[in-house]
Amino acid sequence: MIKDYALSTSKLNLYYGKFYALKEVNFHVPKKAITALIGPSGCGKSTLLRCFNRMNDLIEDVRIEGDIFVNRQRIEEIDIIELRKKIGMVFQRPNPFPFSVYENMVYGLQIHGMNNRKKNHEIVERSLRAVGLWDELKDRLSAPALSLSEEMKQRLCIARVLTVEPEIILLDEPCSALDPIATMRVEELMIELKRDYTILIVTHNMQQAARVSDYTGFMLLGELVEFGETSQIFTSPKDSRTEGYITGRFG
């Protein structure tokens, strides 16, 4: 792991009220690679992911201790608007706004005060091309986004994130609402995107982590049990709990 880290945490503890959700987590996400977080549901992997764009702030009764760094800068020092511009997020369920495809695509741009029609159109085209939707949607930009198939919706959500040129993309179980073929296509897309972006993906699907990621972290009951190169985690895990999970003894 020689690469520079885009995201890291040091002795991170997080509580939902009295529930101790993340325990002393030291975690690093290398730049321009795909890092996967795996583990049984309720282990805290989504919670950890949401720490990096401060989505946990929206939940009441959350207490966070320890340090989170984005590009080696402490997260508290970064303006939240800048932070969320730099770190895009794709959710479990495809969640386009109930507006047209085009309005979805320019939402982030307008939020950042970019109202140049011509420029925006170029960005929309480039972002839709990046997710392989341009040819299908170029004549249907004014169609309602909710009329698309689930897979296209999710791709649209990824494209929507790309419009504001983030450095890091957080994917929270992005394929759990998709069928196997759509999942495969989204995985191919992720591998293409890692040339330009740092990607952190949470998945409950171990095969998916093995297929797409360069690094994998295994979480259990709020602890980051083991972290390393994906090939190492899946072939020679150091911790017996990791071995137990990937060989299917529990989870």
């Binding site: 989505m55 929206l58 511009k85 895009g88 997020m89 959710f91 969640n95 939020i111 994130v161 504001v164």
Partner: peptide, 10 residues
């Protein structure tokens, strides 16, 4: 979820 995604888009 629509509010959350809007916040996530800063």
């Amino acid at each position: 979820s629509l509010r959350i995604v809007s916040y996530s888009l800063s």
